[in-house]
Design a protein around this nucleic acid. Structure first.
Lengths: 200, 200
DNA sequence: CGTATGTTATTGACAGCGTCAATTGACGTT
DNA sequence: AACGTCAATTGACGCTGTCAATAACATACG
């Protein structure tokens, strides 16, 4: 399936298509992302993307991988210089929210579009990386006796709450941005009350 | 836009198409729901659905309305005979979860597919109805001094948490059903700890 | 230096989709 | 029995994803 180019050239071209596809999706909406438009926008002929992606699903898969890695990068960047574990958790949460709000189309692709079958192995690896990054502070806080639950239990709950909150926001069910932030504060306080055993 | 049939006949036919479309979507997946397949499955010719729905978006809109009303009906049914407000809240939450798990395609259509523009007026009415049903127990519990927050603040947080939890489950990120139920319990306890001021 | 080979990129083609315009056909009214 | 009305069908168009056949082009070899 991968063409006979050198490994580097092939990933380079794939990245080119992925970036172009993301640009289309984020500027014109998910429905506007068509393989033909991708091809012509990339200055290439209609079926050329098929040399680098088996089908449209494979393209979306590559876009998801790119997105998760971008989010992981942003997380790693964000916690540089932040020492307290609980503060790191808050920063990671803020990074997640910022990512969701500033890149809504990509966020929807990552977290709100049903993955039909099982995830591909590279996509699984990308999500695993993100999981590891976000789990580390929770693990350390748990080890330090600050958190009441270990990451494998705390993580899903936090993720669920934040993600659900964002979805309600994007559905316009929370009113304006001020109302959103208030709900966010409520959620924050309730989660803190439920999980933090002692101040950090 | 509505054809010149009697009002009753028209809604009857629309319901027929909506039910047929739901059957297709829930048995063959969302992607398999095409207007042409809907027509032939309904034993009618290709473009007949266009006499009753302006376009595919209008059909999906009608399906959403149907779905919200089905969920509202289930909620009303579920709290019959349940007196304590907090217990009602729990029952409504369970109804929501059951609905999401037993009718995943419809659930995704209702809560996980981006509504492009603003909602249509009838759809808004259907969601309002559901909102009212779920808000009532929270309001009464709040009035009775049991809840720490009024419905307009508590509701979104609970909804966010439950919805996010379900989405993570459907993404396969929570492992098997036993793990899901454990996370659900964690979420329950944390929310209770955060919101319930006194035992009911 | 010219030719042969392999592989990238393009064009052609097909089925299926959403959608609209023109046509058919049944049925109540006069 | 002729007419008018309107639900329903068929035909057609542009678009999509996708595959097969073709062209262009670089590289290796005589």
């Amino acid at each position: 399936m991968p063409p006979g180019l050198s490994e580097d050239e092939i990933v380079e071209k794939r990245d080119l298509f992925v970036n172009c596809a993301l640009k289309i999706m984020e500027s014109e909406g998910s429905d506007a992302l068509t393989l033909r438009k991708l091809a012509t926008t990339a200055g290439v002929s209609r079926t050329t993307p098929y040399l680098y992606f088996k089908d449209k699903a494979a393209l979306l898969d590559a876009m998801r991988i790119h997105g998760f890695n971008a989010l992981s990068d942003a997380c790693e960047q964000a916690i540089i210089g932040v020492e307290k574990h609980v503060k790191q958790m808050r920063v990671l949460g803020e990074t997640y929210v910022t990512f969701a709000i500033t890149r809504p189309a990509l966020y929807r692709l990552l977290f709100m579009s049903g993955v039909d079958g099982d995830m591909s192995e590279p996509l699984r690896a990308a999500t695993d990386r993100y999981n590891k990054i976000t789990s580390a502070p929770m693990q350390k806080a748990y080890d330090a006796g600050i958190m009441a639950l270990p990451p494998e239990r705390l993580g899903p709950v936090l993720w669920a709450a934040i993600h659900g909150l964002l979805e309600l926001r994007s559905a316009g069910l929370l009113g304006d941005d001020q109302a959103f932030e208030e709900v966010q504060r409520n959620l924050n306080s309730v989660l803190a009350k439920g999980f933090v055993k002692k101040a950090d």
